[in-house]
Design a protein around this nucleic acid. Structure first.
Lengths: 227, 227
DNA sequence: CAGTGTGAACCTTTTCACAGCA
DNA sequence: TGCTGTGAAAAGGTTCACACTG
């Protein structure tokens, strides 16, 4: 009876379903079909069913899924029955914005520490948290039992901060700095790079422009398809 | 001679290579092997070679790739020979942070407009840009020839803003609001959801904790694999 | 009989491994 | 000789389509 691990792609969608389910629950529905959930999540229904089947058989044939129960199961699967304390390293523009973001607490997280290398920022109060110096990182991590770190420093400092986080015992890192981090096996890193997202959009935007251009010139359809 | 489109997965990595290449160029190297570039980008070398082969045969066997030339080719492919003007809708914490982010201008973008629904914010100066009201969106888009919009509003407002962007002629949207947008065919949307990234980390973090737990209790290896 | 759960088919992406070129 | 470029194999992910059930 070896339980197979949930595919990475499915894990990536569970949070989307969770958010959609919470919306649906707030809308008053007590039951939901894969079709409806799919629409709310922006995917197709077969995917929803397959993804949810990895959690177990929580649906009822001919009816759908019980919304409240499914929310509970997805939360449990994602480990969101607890609130995870997180530390943000780098209290610049982005760090500030994240520290003030109310969405985190609503969705399973609690800012438990703010840290910066700049002594001018140490002591500053952001929300209920006082900014501490980077050299106190290990203490903060230990005091607050922090398992997740968020890097909001410039690229040049990111690797050093990652090393410090790992040395402090943090095993999961969300990296907003535009730099590739190297960490020991067993440490998870996810990266969010705002400029990269825009660059990807630019690629497709440019291609659309090229296509429109070809259309405008009235070339053959055969040519259109190759752009 | 039908040119095939570059696979989506490859497009997603081109910006990463570009960044790595710029770093490498700043380090003084004039030539780079797929192996070295792969390390800098955090992928393996076969992937680098396959991805780059979609742009053409720009490498030299036995030597590697010319750094400057490859940078040029990747920029061209991504459409970064021009600076794209973008508009940010929603000048809250995150919108402010993005408006002040210097990385955009270095990587192919220019904040050309800031817009908010809150009249209290209209007229505020952020950098060199004055915040304008949401109802002026179409004007801003037209005046500045904007093709890319960034949504930094709360979830509830996101769909309305997306509709307004599309109506104004914007065909590419980067959405930071935790909401699924529906847009007409031909409009590209990319989504960045900060809480979702953390939730994915939480899933793996929880799994690591469970695994460590099993280890600590000294269960059989067979049991370990199923967690 | 509406809608889940799931094998099987299909498509995309990654990795391997090596021929071929500077 | 060293490293690119690329077919072919393997892995991973998506979609189809339908048997089955509440």
């Amino acid at each position: 009876m070896t339980e197979r691990p949930i595919p990475e792609a499915s894990v990536g969608r569970l949070p989307i379903y969770l958010r959609a389910l919470v919306d649906i629950a707030e809308g008053g529905a007590t039951t939901v079909s894969s079709e409806t959930l799919a629409e709310a999540a922006g995917v197709n229904s077969a995917k929803v069913r397959k993804d949810l089947s990895h959690l177990g058989s929580y649906g009822t044939r001919g009816v759908g899924y019980d919304v409240a129960y499914l929310i509970h199961q997805v939360r449990r699967e994602l480990g969101l029955t607890q609130h995870w304390p997180i530390v943000i390293v780098g209290v610049g523009n982005l760090g500030h914005a994240l520290a003030n973001y109310r969405g985190f607490s609503e969705r399973g997280f609690r800012i438990a520490g703010l840290v910066d290398a700049d002594r001018a920022k140490v002591g500053e109060q952001v929300g209920s948290i006082t900014v501490r110096h980077l050299e106190d990182l290990a203490t903060v991590v230990w005091e607050q039992s922090i398992a997740i770190g968020v890097i909001c420093t410039p690229a040049a400092e990111a690797q050093g901060v990652a090393d410090a986080l790992v040395a402090s015992g943090v095993r999961s890192i969300l990296n907003f700095a535009p730099a590739v981090l190297s960490v020991p096996a067993g440490v998870s890193v996810r990266k969010v790079d705002l400029a990269i997202e825009l660059q990807i959009l630019a690629f497709y935007e440019q291609r659309k422009a090229a296509l429109a251009d070809v259309k405008r010139r009235g070339r053959a359809v055969a040519d259109l398809t190759k752009v």
